[in-house]
Structure formats: C-alpha cells, structure tokens
Design a protein around this nucleic acid. Structure first.
Lengths: 347, 347
DNA sequence: AACGCCTCCGTGCCCGGGCACGAAAAATTT
DNA sequence: AAATTTTTCGTGCCCGGGCACGGAGGCGTT
C-alpha cells in the first residue's frame, strides 16, 4: 500500500504531461508560472521523491568530484585526509560518481592558482577545497559559483560566501582544549610552543586560531605562566635538535610543550634522547604521532578525523549533485577527539 | 570508451535473445546446455556486470532492515544508538530501504525470544542485533542464517559464527583506558566501582569485560589500590543517595569513582551535594553525562559513538542486500573517544 | 491576412534488465 | 506419420525518468 508516487502520477493529477513535470523538477524553465505552481503543489502533497534508480539509469553518465589538496608525503596530515577520499569512492561507485585529487604546494600561491585552472579544465561536478590562501581561494570560488559548480571546504574555514558546506573542527576551541590538557591538575610557570618556520609566511592557518585559544585559556587559568616560542625547520632534523638544545640550555625548567600543527613528531627524537619534560600535547593522529603517544613521549593528541571531514564533504557534494539536496548545515564543526596512551590502537 | 556490456550485447553476440541470456544469468533453467555455455563464454569474455540500477528499477520492491534493540527511554544509551537509525534512514531512502526497530526487555530472555519471532514474521532482508543473551541470540542467528537473512551485531560481540559484521568498541581495552584516566598522575590507594543491581543477572555484558580491563590496569600500575564495589538501584534515587552516604561513612577516604555502564549520571546529584571526590570517570555521551562533565562533576567520559556503530551496521547490511557486496572486515572496532570538559560541545 | 517568433507543452523513444506469454523446435507417444 | 508433450527460445511490455523534437497557441509585425 501507499505506493510511492511517480512522475506519471503527478502528470495525471495536474492534467499536464510528464515532460512538463520533469521540467519543473529540474528547474529547466519553459514552464508557465501557473503550471509550475500546480506541479509543485502536487509534489508537496504527495511527498514525491524521484526514483533514484530510474533517474540514474536514464542519465547514465559519470559525475566527477575533484579534491583540491596540498601535496603530501607518506605519513602526513593530508595523507590521512586522503583516506576519506578512498572511503567515499567505494561508497559513491554505485552512484556513478568518481573522485580525483589535484595537489598544490601549500607554500606557493602560484601553484595553487595553477592547480585551480587544472581543476576547471576537468569540468568537475563538484569540488572539495582544502584552502590555504584566502584571496586566491576567493577568486577560485567565485569562478566555481559562476559556473554553478558546488564546492565544499574542509579543514580551514575561510571567509568565503557561497560554499555548500564546511567540515572541520573549531580551531579556537581546540587550542583551548589543548591548554586544558597541558595544564590540568598542575599550575604552570612555563610552557613552550614549538612552531614551524615556514608557516609564518602563510596567509591563513588554523594554527593561529589554536594559538589564540590556547593563550586565552592560559590567561584565565594560569595567568602567571610564561609562554615561549621556538621555531624549527621541518626539513632539517639536526637543526631542530640544536634549536631544542639551545632552548633548554637557556630555559632548563620548561616541562610542558605544545605544537599546534600536526607535526609534534618532529621533536620526538630529541625528547626521547633527553627525557626532561612532563607533558607534551600535539595535534592529529599521524602514525608517527601515535607511535610517540604509545611510547609515552607524547602525552596527548587532539585528533580531528580529517578522513571523516573529507568523507562527509564528498558525501554532501554527491547529495547535492545527484539529488539536488541542500545540506541542513553549512558549517559542520566536527568533534575533536582526545587521544591518550591507551586509546590509540583502533586508529 | 570501453562502454560497459549490456544484456543486449550478449544476446547479439550469441545470436540468442535477451530473454535467454536473462534465464542464464539467473539460473532460471529452460535453457539448453549449448546455449547456456555459449552465453557463459561471452559473459566471461566481456566481463559482463549487470547494471544494478536497471535491475533494481525493474524489480522495484522495498527492502526492510530490522533493528533488534533493548527498549529504551529518553536520554538513555539506546536512544543515542537510535539516532544512527534515523541517520541511516535518510541515507537509505533513495535505495528503497526502510528500517524498523523492535525492542525487548534487556533483563528478560523471554522477551528477547518473543521479539525474535516478531522479527522473523516481518520477513526482513537484514537484521541488526544488539544482543544481551548469548544462547538466545545464537538460536536466533542460526534461524536467520537458515533463511539466508544477513545480520550484523552492534555493541556486544557474542561468540556467534556467521554474522556479516560487528561494530563496537573493544570492551576490555576501554576498561583499561578508564583506569588510566582515573589514576594517571597519582598513585591510588582506594577506588570505588559503582554498579547497577539488576545487571548482575544478565548473561552477557560488556561491563564485565570493562571491569576486567580496569582491574588489570590497576594491578599493573596501582597494585596497592583497594577497589570496592557498591550496587545501586537505578529506579530509586533516594536509595542511591543513601547507599552512597553509607558507603562514604564507612570509607571516607575514597576519592575516585568509576562506572562501567552509561549511567554515571545517576550518582551525579549526590556528588554535587557532597563534593568530596577527585576524579569520576564514566561511559557514554548521554546528555545527562555531558552536562555533568561540563559542570566538572564528572572528570571524563569514554564515548563509543553508538549512533555511528548503528549507522555503519545498517550501511553494511544495505550494501550486502542491494549490491551483494561483502564487507572488507567483519569485526570493526571503533574508536573510543575521551571526552573532557572542553571538548563536549560539538556532540 | 500572412508571416515570423516566443513561450509553453506533449509525444515518444531511450536507458538496461525482469518477466509473462506464447510460439517454435525437439522429443515422445500413438 | 500424425498427434501430443516437453524443452527451449523470442517477443514485447514494464519499471520511472531524462530529454530531444516538434507542435500548438499567443503575440507582434508588415
């Protein structure tokens, strides 16, 4: 009973033909206002939903969603994120949707611009952007909008009107939480923030917001704490070691370290050779980070499930592309997980 | 290019008609051996795969997945789990799959058996079981298998051959983690486990495994710690208060409390009236638990995302039912999240 | 009045496969 | 050899929607 309504039912009930109903359904124009309204009324009344199979069968073509990500090596944050693409691929195969990834150099706006034009040439049906450059991304987004290609943002939410959805964690709060984990149960006198040299150049960076959240927590709960910074070069382990050595020579009493990017693992070798700190808190479940967590060198990690973010973003786009479904929320702040020594294994 | 072969291509190449090809494809008989072989040869040669959309469209029926869950009230653990059903429902609507939930009394094997027969009468295409009774579930599972109805398990993994997939967290490890969070950074002399009276009767219970993991951690890291138990009645808040009162009269130095079920919130009112403990650790993100966490009464919660478990289980079944797709993994241990005061908001 | 041009709409075929029905071919029976 | 049964097969319509094409009707122009 209660058979699902079809396009023919609507045609019959409105006294129009299915061609017209179809035009209404796809906003393809060439329909008078009167007919349009009549069709819409009946659609609402019947709660009509198109039959996915019939639709897919009739259309038959393949849709493409392109991911615009920073280039990444093995074991990096963006590789984690790419796991979400794989997961989405298998879920979307039955919908004849394929995904492709285009990469850019996260330290070069030029390379980003170049990647953007490659994406456009592919005539994608949807784009997932992990943005790094505010201005360039805005330009690109405008271009996508003008071609009415929907796009979603992951990781960093730039000021950008017109995106279909954003998936990421609340950066400020994650910094706040980070400070709580670093200091909970003790009263800190000193703490160290380790930063990546090149990151200073970037125009946009969630680590900035994290730092702000961190600072605010400390101000509220450990106002007497002195917070120092140290810059390291990710491509030069020896120099990193030296820098840390020099730092601890000067400030031997520091026992608490944080990093707001995903690369806490860079300082792990040093810490394991010179065990002196009490708590080390970092971000993201890179395998190198997890290993350090299991060994106890790192006390806690805040994980943001990049693969989930990407998966969801792709799903949302697919929903939009295939079913013209608008997502309920545009800004989806996902949960931050706290990883401790004994809950890392199932990652 | 490399268009996918259709049933018509095969018909053409074999010189037979698509009716015959169809009979071969479905082993529906009424085909001579010669024709059968010819068709099979061409199928293999072309690597023919039927178009699922066309097939589903032509067949057109609705599939049903039934969830067999304990009955639950507002704000309970199984209500959280049911959120996964809602999520799955909207995702599966386009695949013409509906879900229905059948509930049983989690303290009565009889009611479980009854619920099982109701499920069977519904002629489901797949079943998700949240099992409580080892033996009865095995009987039911055997029945499902004999009718070749696939089923998935969530929450508790019983010893049960033939299930399509299991989704849950590793219970033993979660207890281990729980102990770590309760004691990390201090050396405990005493701790209290609060338990639910009726739970003693149940034949199977992840809380048993959790307790084991907890005990082992304590044995390894706090061997001198005395661990006491207290049973409370969930339906009688006044008695709970009294029990706690009596307990602390007798053991005034206990400062650490755990509960291995989802109902840590039951002791929160008492704790807030008599603030005396240092750390309180519980399970699951029930809203009452989260509220207590935010107020600081509860120190940490281990959350297992029941809604995700259920969602995934349903998805896996749907994949099997619609696309005959076998899942990669049968045992899916999901991540346990640690919830602290400052990462609860996005739940 | 004849013509052209829009706007709006209906018709009909297609997508790939499922399946009922009936006909042709082969095998048996008389 | 004719009649009957059984086996094997082809035809044609259906599922629900997408979409190209062309036609009807309204409007304005010459």
């Amino acid at each position: 009973m209660a058979e699902k309504a079809t396009i023919n039912d609507i045609a019959r009930l409105t006294g129009l033909s299915k061609g017209t109903v179809d035009r209404v359904l796809h906003n393809r124009g060439e329909v008078s206002k009167k007919s349009y309204d009549k069709v819409m009324d009946v659609i609402r009344e019947l709660g009509y939903e198109p039959n996915l199979y019939a639709s897919l069968l009739a259309r038959g073509e393949q849709r493409t969603i392109v991911l615009l990500f920073p280039a990444h090596e093995k074991g990096s944050y963006w590789e984690l994120a790419s796991a979400g693409e794989v997961k989405a691929q298998s879920a979307l195969k039955p919908l004849s949707i394929v995904t492709r990834q285009i990469n850019y150099n996260q330290y070069s706006a030029d390379s980003f611009r170049e990647a953007c034009s490659i994406v456009l040439e592919m005539h994608p049906d949807g784009v997932v952007i992990a943005p790094m450059f505010q201005y360039e991304t805005q330009v690109f987004a405008k271009e996508l909008t003008s071609r009415s290609i929907p796009y979603a943002l992951v990781d960093t939410k730039l000021d950008m009107p017109g995106y279909l959805a954003f998936y990421g964690i609340p950066a400020y709060k994650s910094g706040y939480l980070c400070a709580y984990m670093l200091s909970e149960g003790e009263s800190l006198k000193e703490a160290l923030i380790v930063r990546i040299m090149r990151d200073k150049d970037r125009q946009s960076d969630p680590t900035v917001m994290r730092r702000a959240g961190f600072m605010d927590y400390m101000l509220e709960h450990n106002p007497g704490c002195t917070i120092r910074s140290l810059f390291i070069d990710p491509s030069d382990p020896a120099a990193t070691d030296d820098a840390l050595d020099a730092f601890f020579q000067e400030f031997p009493h520091v026992r608490h370290i944080v990093m707001f990017n995903s690369r806490i693992h860079l300082i792990v070798p040093y810490l394991e050779r010179h065990p002196r700190v009490r708590r080390v808190v970092g971000f993201d479940n890179l395998s190198a980070n997890l290993a350090a967590l299991r060994r106890g060198t790192v006390s806690a990690l805040i994980a943001q499930h990049p693969e989930e973010q990407v998966f969801q973003a792709i799903q949302t786009l697919a929903d939009k592309i295939v079913f013209q479904r608008q997502p309920d929320l545009t800004d989806n702040y996902m949960h931050m997980d706290v990883l401790l020594r004994y809950n890392t294994e199932d990652y």
